[in-house]
Design a protein around this nucleic acid. Structure first.
Lengths: 226, 226
DNA sequence: AGGCTCTGTGACAGTTGTGTGACAAAACCG
DNA sequence: CGGTTTTGTCACACAACTGTCACAGAGCCT
């Protein structure tokens, strides 16, 4: 069953949406605040997220950015505000669509279906299913990394960095590219990448001072090789 | 450059959209009828298609269906009609988004950018097959150079120099040209080139004193030959 | 052969790029 | 709320790279 998370502080609107979505055959779950919604999505990932912009505490834009940080879920903003600035800001923050309240439930579900076509097909996951680099095993599915059969714990950032490098195994990725792909930064301190590469090496390289897989290409960036 | 095809029969609206899109840095192309638009997309595929619903001859819905038959391009409907039925029908036909005229150009481009994130990587990462010169292999992707299968580490400057020479394989490049192309200097000490050529030879020539690939043409410059 | 220019190369100092430990802020987790 | 983990920033040390120079040969011309 397709699950939808609705983040909306107005109880009446939230309940109305939840009811209507269930009517349409969705498995709908509600959250009254951004914080609650983020926690719910982390522990129980839904297939779509609907989010209001005006939320108490963390606002909708920030909520979208945080969702996007480690989730590729389609996000639709459902807001009463119809100004161009809000629309542009929400889309820039990472939303996929923006509809203005009140919205016909048929239009909403049609938009969800349109988004599903573009969402990463679950059957062909973009991240590599499971890669082995000599003694190194990465399984994005399970979210774990093993070296010589021994499981090593890496943090979320380290894991994403490793996946990004693994996906382009054998090719150089510049610090810029990594900042963009792993952190979503369009600009920022490139040294950040160095630090995390260093930490990753401590965990996955037998001899971190002489990396065999996660190698530096001076002036170019980093690459992962077999 | 990102190309957008605008299918819209009203000349004034079409021209306004084309102008605005070009203003935003897109490469915009117009079509006044569905047939014209389909033909244009077949012969000159754009990265996005904007389409009106009310078109003479083939209507917008049919136009979308035909586009979708053999093209995965993101389609945005730009229509004056704002009824739920039209929106649902257009999305069901295969459109990715639906905006109601008049639309702010900033909103439109923000929606295009949001769609781009979801678009299938139409342009697969360019393969750039490693160039081979006899026993010499240059692979810009991996940022590495191999001689007889053995990897040799070259510095960034050396790498660029090698690439420049490889790109014009068999032809002489003067020191002036190399300074210009590799260093970006319009004037400078030509001896600089000598030094780097020398260093490169140490790394890629079996016998650096008798270069076989990176040869000197006295009074002219250097060239790379097979 | 002699005198000239052109090229190869080792040494060196200045610059840039990278690795890493320390630390504070932020996020997370009961 | 408080302790723990993770993240990002900074500074320093060190290694690699770059460009300049001087000098020694090699090539070319008469």
């Amino acid at each position: 069953m397709t699950a939808v998370l609705v983040i909306e502080d107005d109880d009446r609107i939230r309940l109305a949406l939840l009811l209507a979505l269930e009517e349409e055959g969705y498995d709908a779950l509600g959250a009254a605040t951004a914080e609650e919604g983020l926690r719910a999505q982390r522990h129980h990932p839904a297939d779509y997220v609907l989010v209001d912009l005006m939320l108490p505490g963390l606002d909708g834009f920030e909520c979208i950015r945080q969702l996007r940080r480690d989730d590729d879920v389609p996000i639709v903003v459902v807001s009463a505000r119809d100004g161009t600035d809000d629309i542009v800001a929400a889309l820039e923050a990472g939303a996929d669509d923006y509809v203005v309240k009140p919205v016909a439930i048929r239009e909403l579900t049609a938009r969800l279906r349109a988004l599903r076509r573009r969402a990463r097909p679950a059957s062909a996951p973009e991240p590599v299913p499971a890669v082995a680099f000599g003694e190194l095993e990465i399984s994005p599915e399970a979210g774990e990394v093993r070296r010589a059969g021994q499981q090593v714990t890496v943090t979320r950032t380290e894991f994403r960095l490793l996946c990004e490098l693994a996906e382009h195994a054998g090719r150089v990725l510049s610090r810029q590219q990594l900042l963009q792909r792993v952190w979503g930064y369009d600009s920022g301190d490139e040294r950040l990448v160095d630090v995390h590469v260093g930490r990753l090496r401590q965990k996955i390289e037998p001899d971190p001072a002489n990396p065999r897989h996660l190698v530096t290409l001076r002036g170019l960036g980093y690459k992962l090789q077999r």
